[in-house]
């Protein structure tokens, strides 16, 4: 029950932070050079469409009232109409968001599991050659420039080997077939997902491995590790039951801290692989001056990062009994 209260408090905090972000963005949209109206109304719209939209967004009202309209519309899910697609931004986002979550969370979770696992193993063999080679490898992975490695993946996996599709998330020719079954479609998505996921995996894997390794080395100096040795526990039990669970805690924290940074990488990956996610949509919207779409995507990404931070904090509390909410 105290956990519930903690979550409620955090949600309230998140709401305030989110509100501040919204407010700043709203006023930036108004302060930026040029006509604010032109940022929400597509120049190619018919007069009636324009009237309906300006009415809905309160665009003819004074700034203060407009701001209230803006907040109210946000909660009603009205982000405006995308210039490019001519459809409500909310609907575009609703379509894109699951794709992003699918790609991004799978990659982050897989790389966190693999990175902490390998980091744990090599920390036990410190000063050994395998440890050194893997550590340097992880350093290199961690600092690889993401768009570049994404292009190399494409060049190698899609062009040289020809094993994987060049772009996109599905093969339309399969999906239009009436007899295509759900497993076939899922497999198709997985096939498209391999290269972008490998890219994200590679970048994150290195950093999780490095953090886990140094965290393990630090944990190994703790008194309770000595106790475990004195108890005559076998080495693998000391490693897996005593050292690793404690060493994992700082890793969880750093996953939370680096989340915003990872999101950048997610957007880049989606862009290079034309993965129809929200990050690519944001880049696309900014390139094409599709202001309503850009604003909607950005706010949503901010909300997702905030929510993910909460998830990380709750997870931390679950892993560390010393944390009381």
């Amino acid at each position: 029950m105290s956990l519930k209260r903690y979550i409620i408090r955090r949600l309230a905090e998140m709401a305030i932070i989110f509100w501040i972000i919204q407010t700043v963005l709203f006023f930036l949209f108004h302060l930026a050079p040029g006509d604010p109206l032109s940022r929400m109304v597509d120049p190619g719209m018919t007069h009636e469409e324009e009237m309906i939209l300006t009415e809905q967004l309160g665009l003819r009202e004074p700034v203060g009232t407009q701001y209230l309209y803006f907040l109210g519309n946000f909660f009603r899910g009205r982000f405006g109409i995308s210039f490019h697609y001519g459809r409500p931004v909310a609907r575009i986002i609703a379509q894109r968001l699951p794709n992003t979550i699918l790609l991004f969370t799978t990659a982050v979770i897989l790389s966190a599991l693999a990175g902490t696992w390998l980091g744990k193993l090599i920390s036990w063999r410190k000063e050994n050659r395998t440890d050194k080679i893997i550590t340097v490898g992880a350093l290199v992975c961690h600092t690889l420039f993401l768009p570049w490695i994404a292009m190399l993946m494409l060049w190698f996996g899609a062009f040289k080997l020809g094993w994987f599709p060049v772009t996109g998330m599905i093969s339309p020719e399969l999906w239009i077939l009436p007899q295509a079954t759900a497993p076939e479609k899922a497999l198709d998505i997985a096939w498209h997902m391999i290269l972008p996921m490998a890219t994200l995996f590679l970048i994150h894997f290195g950093s999780y491995l490095l953090i886990m390794r140094s965290s393990m080395l630090e944990t190994l100096t703790e008194d309770y590790i000595f106790t475990a040795r004195a108890k005559g526990l076998p080495e693998n039990v000391i490693r897996d039951r005593h050292a690793a669970p404690n060493a994992r805690l700082p890793v969880v924290t750093s996953v939370g801290l680096s989340l915003a940074f990872s999101i950048n990488g997610g957007a880049l990956t989606e862009t290079v692989f034309s993965w129809p996610g929200i990050g690519r949509e944001l880049v696309f919207a900014v390139s094409n001056n599709d202001y309503p779409l850009a604003l909607g995507c950005f706010l949503l990404i901010a909300a997702v990062v905030l929510a993910a931070n909460l998830v990380v904090d709750v997870l931390y509390g679950y892993l560390d009994p010393r944390i009381r909410y």
Partner: peptide, 8 residues
């Protein structure tokens, strides 16, 4: 000392 594992 921290002789007992804090999370067990």
């Amino acid at each position: 000392m921290n002789a007992l594992n804090p999370i067990m």
